[in-house]
Every structure is written in C-alpha cells, then in structure tokens.
Write a protein that binds this DNA or RNA. Structure first.
Lengths: 158, 158
DNA sequence: GTCCTTGCAAAGGCTTTGCAACTGA
DNA sequence: TCAGTTGCAAAGCCTTTGCAAGGAC
C-alpha cells in the first residue's frame, strides 16, 4: 500500500509549485529511493549525497528536506535521538515505528486497532487530529540474544 | 491512579542513592508539584525556579532534571518541538498525549486498547518493549473556533 | 577531609539564516 | 530579466561539560 514517487513524478510535483528539480534535489531524492527501508537523518543524507555530489552543502540538504516534507514527498520522524529522521512518505499515513534502543534498527507496523483509538479520541476530546506519532522502544530479539551471550558484561542500554 | 511524590519521599529516594536534596533540587521539585497539569520545558523550570531562587544556573536545572528522570521522579516527553518537556512521573506509566499545534496545550489519555496493541506487537516481533511514546497532534476545539471567527485570516498552523 | 553539588562560561550537536554568486526559462 | 537556488560561514537553540569554589556530613 506504500507508494513511492519516482524522479519524474517528483519533478512534476515540484514544478507545479514553481520549484525546480535541481541536481542536488534529485540526488537527495535518489538517496531516499535507494534506501527505502531506512530512516535517514539529515547527516545520513548529507554523507550519502556527498559521495556522488561532493560539492553539496549541508544547508542545501536541510532546505531540500524541508521542501520535500512540505510537499509530502518525505515525512519526518522524531525518535528522541536529538535529531530528526526522514523516510519516503507513503499513502498509508498510519504506520508506526518500533525502535531498538540497542542497535537502533527500526521496524514499521500499522494497526487498525490504533486507528479506532484515534477516531474515538478525536470524538471524545472534540479534537481535530492532524497527525500522530507512535513509537515503541525496546530491545529486539538479536540484541537480547547478544546480551545473553555476553551476559557477564552489561547489555548496552544507552 | 497518579502518584506524586512529596518533598520528604523525594528526599528519601535521593538519599537512598547517596544524593542530597539541596535547596536547588527542592525548588525544582516544588515547581513540578505546583504545576501538576503542565508539561514543563527545561527553560520553563529554569524561569519558574529563578523567580524564587535567582542564583540558580541553567546547568543545575539540566542536571537536576536528568537526576530526577533517572530516579523516575519525573518523566521526559518529546513533542517534536525541539526541546524536551517534563512532568511528574506517575504509576500509571501508560498515558499518552494530545498536543494542540495551535495553542500548545496538552491533554492526557490512557487506553487499554493500546496496551493490547503493545502486547500483541511484542509477541509478533519478538521484541522486548521498554517504553513507548504516543502523541496525537492536531487542533483543539477552542482553536478551531477561534480560527473560524477569524476565518478571513489563515489559522495559526505551526 | 571527602564527596557531592553548584554557577559560570565554554563547548557541542543539530539546524537555520544571511548573503553574494549562480542558474535556467 | 528575474525568481529560484546554492555553498559558505555565521548564528541560533537546546543541552552538556570542564572547572574551580562551595557545602554537608
């Protein structure tokens, strides 16, 4: 159910609003397209783009992320790590994240139950819900196994 | 179901761990006790404490917040506003937030349904859930009314 | 005396902004 | 031509850290 824009669709969406798809913006876009499963920080994007476009500046990356976010090409996530993370926006706006505090990997899930909770809340509080943010934090199977193997040492818990 | 520590309980909890309840720490604690319904930023706490203890420094506030968080006297929240917010910790660890993007007010709710979702997910992904984070963002009744009154102007959206 | 604690100032990390130069229709 | 765009460096915010001085037991 996840839709990802290709380069030409993005160009169109930008040009409709009077923006251009510059080489820098295309490079940022392609970074997301080739990392569909990752949740990239601004710095991740900067490093990845820099390997093919060494002249790009951080400011351009931040400005591009902001622009893409406004146009709903990407979405911003905050996992409480002191910086934002970004991923391709999807039609399926209702997906959430499971974040491993040990290895930092992120899994996604969606839940019809949760959407019912949202609708009920909106009604109860007479609140217009514009978005939400749900993460579960914890320790994945792999990290728990690793911690058990090295059980003489303390597991890496932030 | 919400339990709030008083000053003496907090003193005991600190001293058990070899810490002292200094006047600065007590002032921070009292700020939380007298604002049970707010979600204070470090700067909020700093300003409030400064009005009665003008000599306090920011670093002390941050160090106290960190200490109180470690001892589960307060809990930290991230509403994606570029800074952390803190509130008295409660026994009822499973409460969530509804944040108005217009006026910034925060409501709390808890949901048994959501806890079921959590248990199911933990099972499905073989994940040890250590904590979670759920916020709904949107516009409260009051702000929507205000926006309608001034409907010739754009509603204040971030 | 010893360890905890503090205030100050400096430094850190992430992000935004000012600005002059550049680009494309 | 002219608005959009860029890179650089500086600045902004929130938060943490180094350090010498202060305080409780």
């Amino acid at each position: 159910m996840t839709t990802i824009l290709d380069v030409e669709q993005t160009r169109t969406r930008l040009e409709e609003k009077g923006y251009r798809l510059t080489p820098q913006r295309q490079a940022v876009l392609e970074t997301f397209l080739s990392n569909p499963d990752r949740h990239l920080s601004a710095d991740d994007v900067y490093s990845l783009v820099k390997s093919t476009n060494p002249e790009i500046g951080v400011a351009t990356v931040y400005r591009t992320l902001e622009l893409f976010r406004e146009l709903h090409i990407i979405s911003e996530q905050d996992f409480g790590q002191g910086m934002s993370r970004y991923e391709c926006a999807s039609d399926d706006s209702h997906h959430h994240h499971i974040v491993c505090l040990s290895c930092g990997r992120v899994w996604e899930f969606s839940s019809a139950t949760l959407e019912r909770v949202e609708r009920q809340l909106a009604k109860e509080h007479d609140f217009e819900v514009a978005g939400h943010n749900l993460q579960f934090y914890g320790y994945c199977k792999d990290c728990r196994l690793k911690a058990r193997e090295h059980s003489t040492t303390t597991p890496a818990r932030r």
